[in-house]
Computed example of a mutant assay.
Amino acid sequence: MEILRLLLVFLHFIGLAVLIGAFVAQVSGRPKGGGFTVTSGMLHGALTQLVTGLALVGIREGALDLPVDNVKIGVKLLVLIAILALVLVGRRKSLATGGFMAIGLLSVLNVGIAVFWT
């Protein structure tokens, strides 16, 4: 089970890197005055985070029988749902600066919650 958990953590980090990397690439490559377009990398990164995060919680609680901070996981899930909502809206039409920046800010917030909430 430990190998599966480590593989899921690895994939969770990959999803985070893809989400934030695609965000940074879009911000740095945007022409002045143009809108922001959500790329498929941002969608796939966010979905990877969702699937691997849920699997990690399931393995931790179920197979490893370790305690989980349900409030922390709930907050992280709500932040990720907000990210996914913005990403899905941005896939349909160009996002305004505030909406697009919220994706990056919420992604960094989720990392902060994971690291600093003990």
Rank of each mutant, 00 (worst) to 15 (best):
G90C: 03
T48A: 14
L64P: 01
I20G: 10
K32L: 14
A46L: 13
S40A: 09
K76C: 06
L88K: 08
E61D: 04
V68H: 02
G90Q: 05
L77N: 06
L95A: 02
F100Y: 13
V38G: 04
A96I: 09
L56S: 03
V18Y: 03
I59A: 01
L95Q: 04
L77F: 14
S28W: 15
T48G: 15
F23V: 00
G62E: 00
T97L: 08
L95N: 06
A22Y: 05
A96P: 11
N70K: 13
G98Q: 11
L47D: 12
N70P: 07
G90S: 10
F10Q: 08
L86T: 04
E61G: 04
G33C: 06
R91H: 08
A22R: 07
G41E: 08
L11A: 14
A25C: 07
G62P: 01
K32I: 15
I59V: 05
L84M: 09
R60D: 13
L78A: 10
F10T: 15
L19N: 11
L43G: 10
T97Y: 13
I83F: 13
L54Y: 02
V38L: 04
G74C: 00
G98I: 02
A22K: 02
K76E: 13
I14G: 04
V68R: 01
T52I: 00
V79T: 08
S40T: 14
G98E: 13
Q26L: 09
A22L: 01
A22H: 11
T39V: 09
L50F: 12
L64E: 12
K72H: 10
G98W: 11
M42F: 06
L54I: 05
V71W: 07
L84C: 11
L80Y: 02
A17L: 05
G45N: 01
G29S: 14
L16P: 01
R60T: 14
R30N: 13
F100D: 07
G21A: 01
A63S: 13
V79L: 14
L88P: 04
L95F: 03
